[in-house]
Design a protein around this nucleic acid. Structure first.
Lengths: 351, 351
DNA sequence: TATTAGCACTCTATTTTGTTGAGTGCTAAC
DNA sequence: GTTAGCACTCAACAAAATAGAGTGCTAATA
């Protein structure tokens, strides 16, 4: 059987109506809704075909049709038209410009959640590719040394080191120099254990203290890998969609959002390089396509962002399968533009 | 009418049964449950009295009784017996010892949530009373200066300052000295705007750069006030209690937990000094007593913790009114002991 | 006087049955 | 190929019937 234009038009109409109402769509509705000027009977025949082809399905014999995952997929890939760019330009997401990346991210999830009415999440940047800019050790008390590590993208890290024995100023100075000359300019990922070992030997095997300091610094640099921060917002939006709002499902979803650990993997999967056909870096997972099991009744839209200086991360939006894909995609695009404008502006004078 | 011992026993039995089952308790149940050896008819009479006195109430004519807020109050204040200390000793909450306060707090909420099956939250320390230990400015690039601020309790704060014009080493050194001599030993709360003004003048009005640095540092110190971090866990536990699990209520509660802003006020209200009769710093809010409106169907148990060095904060547990108060209180007590042992051990050698 | 057995009564929760209406599939006519 | 018409299906809702837990009251009992 052939999926001709008329079938597509009908499918599109079915899906769009269903996106709005969330109720199975009957033949009569479509007959009126479209400008095809076909009777409900004809539509019924076409719907029957569409069902056979797997694009729509019937919850029960005497109900209208709802889109299947396959139907949604087709809609997202072909049928859905993007909003005109003008609209995008006009809508300005209310994001306050601030230096603190963390604050920006928190705002972003919030704005997205309230704009789309879906649950949203965003990963903080993965710093693996970020270059080390600056390390400094300074003495706080006799036996306490503070290590401050600064990397590109203004990633900063503190580590207070309690020493077993005192360290003198000269040693500290030497260490500072050593750390900086050896590590500066390397990406956090490049700093390996062997390198640390070598440095420890160069610094002088005789001193336990030095070893301790180097170890702690190394730990601080590497430790960041595991716990990428994730911010979420609008988890309770899922209650707005009856098909997700039953206690067990909602509970699972919210737990997943609260827990965040699972999310990391999912968002990492959307590797920042991997772009979709349109080159926007936006990916749509429908139903079972979703990487997380608990979300197989949902759709997940992810987008990667790149703020320069190795600050890359991922945004995710979770909603019902009948989510307003156009709006979501549109929002994400607008967001990208704005993030760029916030951060590029900041970078230009520096570069 | 008099609330004699027998009435108390019956009330206690009613409440305890209700805590377990969540269903209205009938006279027959009590007649069998207690060792009073009274017939259900007698119990009925007593229950009738208890209802008149306002300790229990009937959801409808032909149902059993459930405790009223007043009933719970009496139970919590008088009837509930604390578990023996032994039990407390045995139970060891699985808290990994780590330096990072933040990690400890995250663990604490998690453990508490899974131990109690209620939603939990904890505020990070309020640093208002914490003394400044150490400030250091260091140059990162020509026009970038990094300020590191360390206060008691190992509170650390970084602030990268983008300068409008370059600053030379000498000036930086001078500033470092000035900041340290002026501010060291003061609590974060004591550092006022006037003080900053005065310092700026002393440092030399001629230089905009110096003003900028001082301003930013001041901002960093004060800025912390507003956004005390709050960690939450087990929000979805509320779905375990049918009386809270309906969509609207659950949604409100979870939103409150996600949003956190409201929580701050609530937890602040439990001022760390304010202890209850037993001197444990544990407070119980039943139903409408709760400071937050959305939680008027819940009970909230709060406890303050004090880790020394000005690190004080509050823990909160949110559950249904029929929460297992004994278990919650017990858990909180155990937790206090453990937190002490983690942090005191760390402090001793230093002191 | 306090306790208890017994019984009528109340009220929710559950099940059963009936009714409605949206929507389909099929057939026959256009 | 399209459409009108009709019988049929099935969820959703409403009404009625039933069951059972629990009460309050009265009268008998210790």
């Amino acid at each position: 059987m052939d999926l001709d234009d008329r079938k597509k038009t009908i499918l599109k109409a079915i899906i769009q109506t269903y996106l709005e109402t969330g109720e199975p769509v009957g033949s009569r509705t479509i007959s009126k809704y479209t400008d095809l000027n076909l009777s409900s009977a004809t539509i019924r025949n076409e719907m029957s075909d569409l069902e056979e082809m797997g694009y729509i399905l019937q919850p029960h014999t005497s109900a209208g049709r709802i889109p299947s995952d396959k139907g949604y997929r087709l809609y997202v890939d072909e049928l859905m038209q993007e909003k005109e760019q003008e609209v995008t330009e006009i809508k300005e997401l209310m994001i306050e410009k601030t230096d603190r990346l963390e604050k920006v991210l928190k705002q972003v999830v919030r704005v997205l959640a309230s704009n789309t009415n879906y649950a949203t999440m965003i990963t903080g940047p993965v710093y693996h590719q970020t270059k080390l800019k600056f390390i400094q050790l300074s003495r706080v008390t006799e036996t306490q040394v503070l290590a401050v590590i600064v990397a590109e993208g203004n990633l900063m890290k503190n580590q207070l080191i309690d020493l077993e024995e005192a360290i003198d100023d000269e040693q500290l100075l030497k260490l500072n120099l050593l750390l900086n000359t050896q590590l500066n300019g390397l990406t956090l990922g490049e700093i390996s254990l062997e390198m640390i070992q070598r440095m420890k030997q160069q610094a002088g095997i005789h001193s336990k203290v030095i070893g301790q300091v180097v170890d702690t610094v190394a730990e601080a640099i590497q430790g960041d890998e595991e716990d990428t921060p994730i911010y979420t917002s609008g988890a309770t939006n899922i209650f707005k969609y009856p098909e997700l709002a039953d206690t067990t499902r909602a509970s699972q979803l919210i737990s997943a959002l609260e827990d965040k650990r699972e999310l990391v993997d999912m968002l990492k999967e959307t590797s920042p390089g991997e772009d979709d056909a349109s080159g926007t870096g936006i990916q749509i997972y429908i139903g079972k396509e979703s990487p997380i099991q608990t979300m197989s009744d949902c759709s997940v839209v992810t987008a990667s962002y790149d703020l320069g200086e190795g600050m890359k991360g991922t945004i995710g939006i979770i909603g019902p399968k009948r989510m307003d894909y156009e709006n979501v995609v549109d929002n994400l695009k607008t967001l990208k533009v704005q993030l760029d404008s916030i951060f590029k502006k900041k970078d230009e004078p520096g570069t």
